[in-house]
Amino acid sequence: MKRLILPVAILCVGFIYTSCGGGGSTEAPKEEKKVQMNMGSDPAPSAEAPSADVGDPMTNLGIGPVKSIELAAIDQGMVAEGKKLFEEYCTACHKVDKKFIGPSPAGIMERRTPEWVMNMILNPEEMIQKDPLAKQVMMESNMAVMANQNMTEDQARKILEYFRTL
């Protein structure tokens, strides 16, 4: 919409000149504006290296319904269910073998607390607003937002279990 404003403004100016009987220059002073895009030339911060202001990721529980998770031995039944859910609801943006729209979940348990992972799945809107780590991931993901896929806490827990095997 912004682009429309200028031509219309010029039209108005033109109208006033015309109604004054013409004469005078109709050339409006042109302000030259240089826009530098710098597409892709910014050194993107490494996903593995948290900057000082995001704190220690391994103590950050995130924001959301999950306050504390006790991890026992890996439950293969839950892993299988979690893998299926991940494939159905998450793989449009997350691939195990590479960064896609968002980061790969491989090795996530070494970078994040289990609570943070589940809260990111269950409460992404608030996380990307308030949690410094989540904000950083969004910036690194070209501002693509984490979609809320309406998982239940039980479903998110199974996905977490699957992540433990990656």
Partner: peptide
Amino acid sequence: MKSLKISIAALIGIS
């Protein structure tokens, strides 16, 4: 959008 409205309003107003 606002400036558009104002300009048009001004035009209409003048005419």
